[in-house]
Nucleic acid binder design. Structure first.
Length: 459
RNA sequence: GGCCGGGUGGCAGAGUGGCUAUGCAGAGGACUGCAAAUCCUUGCACAUCGGUUCGAUUCCGGUCUCGGCCUCCA
């Protein structure tokens, strides 16, 4: 079954045909490192991680490029507010970003280029644009000339006139055309700046992705991804710059994930519904956060809710419980992902459908009677989970997760109480057994008596 | 105003021109010292009005309604 992806450029689902079937290239817009990643940042990270895993399965080689934007006016402002050097802020934030998304089981990209390490490539690209008549210098700025590119607006499906009519910002006087946008801008001495043919300055927002995607993937590559909000202006401008500078088509397939809401409202600090990934990792295991983000189709708007996170955790409880029951059975064909799971993902990354198949596999595993069947369905569940970046941890470690504040009872304390209760049961002292069960339950520990003994888990 | 995407059972959330989504929650049952887990059974849908069709939740059009974007927010 071929992979099909919804391409923003064509506005429909198209069969995915890589330029080079032996080596797929993907570029995804990464974070601007001025603050902790929030849950809205995490969605594209998880979505494109699933795509990366799927592509790796379908093709011999995949280069996944995800940039770090470490030059930006928000960074400058934050560093100044904190009274710290810019490099200290960007390095720390980058490190925290890696920690946070690592907890969400996101694989590192193949290349993670930093904007400040590619200023030379950006300047070269701007020079090429000027030479070809697609850009001009004005008052120390270099601007892209939108009228020089007739196809401008194709990705975001809007005409130049519409853009100007809707503009909410004042148009800088040095622009030849109201739609023109900045490639390079002057930097005063107190802001980060690099020498350039146009004096000391810093790059505009869009040029870094053009320069870095070209550096690592070439002028034309397979997939470019990011949040839906980036379609315009960021991706539209990026495409314009790259096409004009390179004289070649840019990304062939554009993927955009929908916006994230929180409890039905737009996430914002003023509404008090702003969550960083770190905040959530204190409340729930990273794997539950990851599953929650995959529980709606990537193209849909996503409503982040406490209830949804709870359900994601319950879902993983159910799946890990199924695995726990067959802990002593070796899975067969650990790499065989069931066709229906693969088909769901190949159909424009239908993660909710794939997850529903995980449930069905778990049910089959629970119902399996022979060792062979159990081994088969265990293998299917693990392989499916691996493709989705789920179910990879030790079963017992999943059930022992404790929130940030720690647990009232340590693992050894719990085990002691479980043993005591077992002794009470053996002595038919059910009142004492029930008292211990109750005490554990009040501390978030659930007991399960089975033929093989009593197991416990935190919930 | 322009562009775009939605409105599915109590909740979350897929999908389809006629046939069970899936999970949680609810009801009943099996199992259990009690429980949990598991399994079985079961109730509950497709915003609205027209049109196309043998037949539409699924296609087309209108209406209502929610949300996003429109120069630097993923």
């Amino acid at each position: 079954m071929p992979l099909v992806l919804y391409n923003t450029l064509t506005r429909r689902k198209d069969p995915f045909q890589p330029l080079d079937p032996s080596h797929v290239g993907m570029y995804v817009c990464g974070p601007t490192v001025y603050d902790r990643a929030h849950i809205g940042n995490a969605r594209p990270i998880v979505i494109f991680d699933v795509l990366f895993r799927l592509l790796q399965r379908l093709y011999p080689a995949v280069t996944y490029v995800r940039n770090i934007t470490d030059v930006d006016d928000k960074i400058n402002a934050r560093a100044q507010a904190n009274g710290e050097p810019i490099s200290a802020l960007t390095e720390r934030t980058t490190r925290l970003f890696h920690e946070d998304i690592g907890a969400l089981n996101a694989l590192p990209p193949t290349v993670e280029p930093r904007a400040t390490a590619h200023i030379g490539q950006m300047i070269a690209m701007i020079q090429a644009l000027i030479a070809k008549g697609h850009a001009y210098e004005a008052e120390g700025h270099v601007l892209f000339s939108v009228p020089s590119m007739p196809e401008y607006g194709r990705l975001s499906n809007r005409s130049r006139d519409e853009m100007i009519a809707g503009a909410r910002v004042e148009i800088a006087p040095y622009k030849r055309d109201a739609a023109d946008f900045v490639l390079w801008k002057p930097s005063p001495g107190d802001l980060p700046g690099w020498d350039s043919p146009w004096g000391r300055g810093r790059p505009g927002w869009h040029i870094e992705c053009s320069a870095m995607s070209r550096e690592y993937l070439g002028p034309t590559f397979d997939i470019h991804g990011g949040g839906q909000d980036l379609v315009f202006p960021h991706h539209e401008n990026e495409m314009a710059q790259s096409c004009c500078a390179n004289g070649a088509p840019f990304a062939r397939t554009w993927l955009h994930n929908g916006w994230l809401m929180v409890e039905g409202e737009k996430m914002s600090k003023s509404l008090g519904n702003f969550f960083t990934v770190r905040d959530l990792l204190d409340q729930a295991p990273g794997e539950a956060i990851r599953l929650a983000l995959m529980s709606a189709h990537y193209h849909q708007p996503f409503d982040w809710t406490a209830e949804g996170l709870k359900q994601a955790r319950q879902t993983l409880d159910r799946l890990y419980l199924a695995l726990r029951a067959v802990a002593d059975i070796a899975p067969t064909e650990a790499d065989s992902v069931p066709l229906e799971v693969l088909a769901a993902l190949e159909d424009d990354l239908n993660t909710p459908l794939a997850i529903s198949h995980l449930h069905e596999i778990a049910t089959k595993l629970n119902k399996a009677e022979t060792i062979a069947e159990k081994a088969k369905w265990k293998g299917a569940l693990l392989a499916s989970g691996r493709l989705l970046g789920l179910l990879g941890q030790e079963v017992e470690s999943w059930f022992r997760w404790v929130p940030a504040g720690g647990a009232a009872l340590s693992d050894p304390q719990v085990q002691q109480m479980v043993d005591d209760r077992l002794a009470a049961r053996k002595a038919k002292n059910f009142a004492e057994a029930d008292r211990l069960r109750q005490a554990l339950s009040e501390n978030g520990v659930l007991l399960e008596d089975g033929p093989g003994g009593t197991t416990w888990r935190r919930a």
